[in-house]
């Protein structure tokens, strides 16, 4: 089944106010920034955002007023430091009050994994004794076999996971490589998956390299062809990290007014992703296109 939609169509159809949305789950790579910008343009409300570390993506969507709650282990600007919008929301309730379900990377991964396994929780030895482990999504348990003390992490089920990957076919069979973070756990836990990708490939390409498939198409609701859809985050083989963009964002979002003008320039003032790429300019995109000779040789699947 061909699941290809435009970004506008996919976000309009699959993301609704009040939903729990996992996005940016490969940590600092493959962040679906373009999809986040479209969420902001469509003025979605009261979202719960789920990801361990999603660099500045959460900060942007929080600042745009679309978020009620974050389920995260880290919210900020990875290379530059604190997230100004996250701070304003948590410290001053600007632009609105924000709830947070605090995690470590491991407990967030386990919460998603539990949902992906169809289980209500998973046990771990991490995070015991920390102050966030007292929150309601954790419980102290004893192993039924050894009686030792463990921490139970409640399952986290996203309504939808938005993933950016290198390539997919029109049915949503997704190839990805490089850093995964908790991308697979998020996709396998979510009720549905929205995929954005740098390249659309023939179904035959997927069949020729099935070990590279991170998400089978039957989990996927919509597929959006979106070159540089992870900008400014990197997509190995397709896009370098645009380091300057993060530092510029950090500087400009320092004040609420600065963030609003940043948002106007890069998100609200552009109609869609292709206008965003035009705004970035061909020279900048050229510099962000990886060079080098780090190719993986093809392998034999003969039998």
């Amino acid at each position: 089944m061909n699941k290809m939609l435009t970004l506008r169509e996919a976000v309009a159809r699959d993301i609704h106010d009040g939903m729990a949305v996992a996005m940016g789950c490969a940590l600092e790579s493959l962040i679906p920034f373009a999809a986040g910008y479209e969420i902001i343009r469509q003025k979605k409300k009261d979202l719960t955002l789920i990801a361990p570390i999603s660099d500045i993506q959460f900060d942007q969507i929080i600042g745009a007023g679309c978020v009620k709650k974050v389920v995260a282990s880290w919210v900020g600007n990875v290379a530059a430091g604190l997230g100004h919008n996250f701070r304003r929301a948590m410290e001053e309730g600007i632009p609105g009050r924000l709830e947070i379900e605090e995690h470590s990377n491991f407990t967030l991964a386990l919460g998603l994994k539990a949902a992906a396994m169809g289980l209500p929780f998973l046990p771990t030895r991490t995070a015991r004794g920390s102050d966030f482990a007292h929150e309601h999504h954790y419980a102290e348990i004893n192993c039924p076999f050894t009686r030792e003390k463990l921490l139970a992490v409640r399952a986290i089920q996203p309504d939808v996971a938005i993933l950016h990957v290198q390539r997919a076919d029109s049915e949503g069979n997704a190839h990805a490589w490089g850093n995964f973070g908790v991308l697979r756990e998020a996709a396998f836990a979510a009720k549905k998956v929205v995929l954005t990708c740098d390249e659309i490939v023939d179904h035959e390409m997927i069949l020729s390299d099935p070990n590279r498939t991170v998400v089978p198409g039957f989990l996927v609701s919509s597929v959006v062809h979106l070159p540089f859809g992870s900008h400014p985050s990197p997509t190995q083989g397709y896009a370098r990290r645009d380091d300057d963009f993060y530092f510029e964002y950090h500087k400009e979002s320092r004040t609420r007014e600065g963030f609003e003008s940043w948002l106007k320039k890069w998100v609200l003032g552009v109609k869609d992703h292709s206008e965003y790429l035009t705004l970035l300019g061909s020279e900048r995109l050229k510099n962000l296109t990886p060079g080098g000779n780090l190719f993986s040789p093809s392998v034999s699947f003969n039998f």
Binding site: L110, T124, T126, G178, G181, S233, T235, R241
Partner: peptide
């Protein structure tokens, strides 16, 4: 790498399993 978790940080790695596997190595 500017951060520990982006493309430059896996250059010539021997393996690139996912976050949960790395955390399981710790555990």
């Amino acid at each position: 790498p500017r951060s520990t978790n982006e493309a430059r940080s896996v250059r010539r790695s021997v393996a690139t399993p996912a976050t949960i596997d790395m955390m399981l190595f710790l555990q």
